[in-house]
């Protein structure tokens, strides 16, 4: 069973729907006991980084314990940004700091939010992006983005390059929405389910 962590960050039914389509059992939850019992964890999210504050309560320990125990974890959109140290969108809300750096707003030279289909540039070995070619299109909708770091396995160029996917051991994050990225997105979720 995959636990989809519901921390009040908008609509998350589409992630569950995509997993059902892949015939994977999933449960939307904010119960630390369910998270502890799950085989894998997904933290979805759209909207404001300050919503992650609710991930910093008693959920934080159960999620971080699961991650340190080697349980596969996937953060989507704001759920990926939470893996970093924080975001200038809500400086008072700390991230999980599993990846170095801070998320920041797009430069004024490009329209923001970045909404629509854009390409990911891959190259490094990645379990999450296995079978997905460089240049594939995925769906984004966000105003803040994560920096390029050593663990970046896919980048996208919009007002400069940013991390479209990060990966270290069994911790994964995607800035795009795999549940809204047609066949390419379903392949990402399928890879995660198959871990």
């Amino acid at each position: 069973m995959i636990a989809i962590v519901d921390y009040g960050a908008g609509n998350i039914s589409s992630v569950k729907k995509a997993l059902e389509h892949l015939r994977t059992e999933a449960q939307v939850t904010f119960d630390p006991a369910v998270i502890a019992a799950a085989e894998k964890i997904i933290v979805p999210g759209v909207g404001h980084f300050s919503r992650c504050q609710s991930l910093n309560g008693n959920l934080r320990l159960s999620v971080l314990n699961a991650i340190s125990g080697g349980k596969p974890f996937l953060g989507i959109c704001v759920g990926m940004q939470w893996l970093f140290e924080g975001s200038t969108e809500a400086p008072e809300t700390p991230g999980a700091a599993l990846f170095p750096g801070e998320c920041s707003r797009f430069p004024a030279s490009v329209k923001s939010p970045h909404v629509g289909w854009n390409q990911i540039e891959t190259g490094k070995e990645s379990r999450l992006l296995k079978g997905i070619s460089s240049g594939a299109f995925v769906y984004f909708t966000h105003s803040f983005r994560a920096p390029i770091i050593e663990e970046t396995v896919a980048c996208t160029r919009y007002g400069g390059a940013f991390s479209a996917a990060v990966e270290r051991d069994s911790v994964f994050g995607v800035q795009f929405h795999p549940e809204k990225s047609a066949e390419t997105g379903l392949k990402v979720l399928e890879n995660f389910c198959a871990l």
Binding site: G116, W117, N118, E121, S134, G135, Y158
Partner: peptide, 10 residues
Amino acid sequence: MPSERLAKRI
């Protein structure tokens, strides 16, 4: 190679 250009949507 990916460009800086976001795809226009249909």
